[in-house]
Amino acid sequence: IINNLKLIREKKKISQSELAALLEVSRQTINGIEKNKYNPSLQLALKIAYYLNTPLEDIFQW
């Protein structure tokens, strides 16, 4: 999986903590996703895309 979450999140000036709060997950979860240590569920990936107002395929590429 190619993961552009960190790049997109930083472009939008959103911290890991802010995104985690919006998604109701821990900051460690966001960190793990960004470091490719954790693959989000489809539901979480869709929520990330929604809150970042970015197409899912721009954030994650399988």
Rank of each mutant, 00 (worst) to 15 (best):
I14W: 06
L22C: 10
E57S: 12
Q43S: 11
Q28R: 14
L19V: 01
E18S: 10
K47T: 05
S26Q: 06
N36V: 04
P55I: 04
E18C: 09
N31S: 13
L52Y: 01
D58Y: 08
I48D: 00
E10R: 10
R27W: 15
E10A: 08
L52R: 01
S41Q: 05
I8K: 03
P55D: 08
S26N: 11
L42Q: 07
W62Q: 09
F60K: 00
A49W: 02
G32M: 15
K13Q: 13
Q28N: 12
S41R: 07
I8A: 06
K37T: 14
L22D: 08
L22P: 01
L56P: 05
Q43F: 10
V25S: 03
E34W: 04
A21E: 12
N4I: 05
L22W: 13
V25G: 01
L44M: 09
R9L: 05
W62Y: 09
L7A: 14
I59K: 00
K37D: 11
L46R: 11
S41N: 09
I8Y: 10
S17T: 11
S41Y: 04
W62T: 10
S17H: 12
K11I: 10
L44P: 00
T54G: 01
L56I: 13
W62D: 07
N4P: 02
T29L: 15
I30K: 00
T54R: 04
P55Q: 06
A21C: 11
E18W: 07
N31L: 11
Y51C: 09
A21R: 15
I2R: 12
R9P: 01
W62C: 13
S17I: 12
S17E: 13
I2S: 12
S41G: 10
I1N: 10
E24L: 11
Y38G: 06
K12W: 05
S17D: 14
L46G: 05
Q28E: 15
I1T: 11
I14L: 13
R9C: 05
K47I: 05
L44W: 03
A49M: 03
L22A: 15
K11H: 10
I30D: 00
R27F: 09
A21V: 08
K37C: 14
Q43I: 13
N4E: 04
Y51P: 01
A49V: 04
K12L: 08
L19Y: 02
I30A: 01
V25P: 01
Q16W: 03
I33H: 01
N3V: 06
Y38V: 14
N3E: 02
S26I: 03
L22N: 09
Q16C: 03
I59N: 01
I8R: 03
L56W: 05
P55V: 05
L5Q: 02
N31W: 10
Q61P: 15
T29H: 10
K11V: 08
K47Q: 10
N31A: 14
I1F: 15
Q28H: 14
S26G: 07
L46Y: 10
L46V: 09
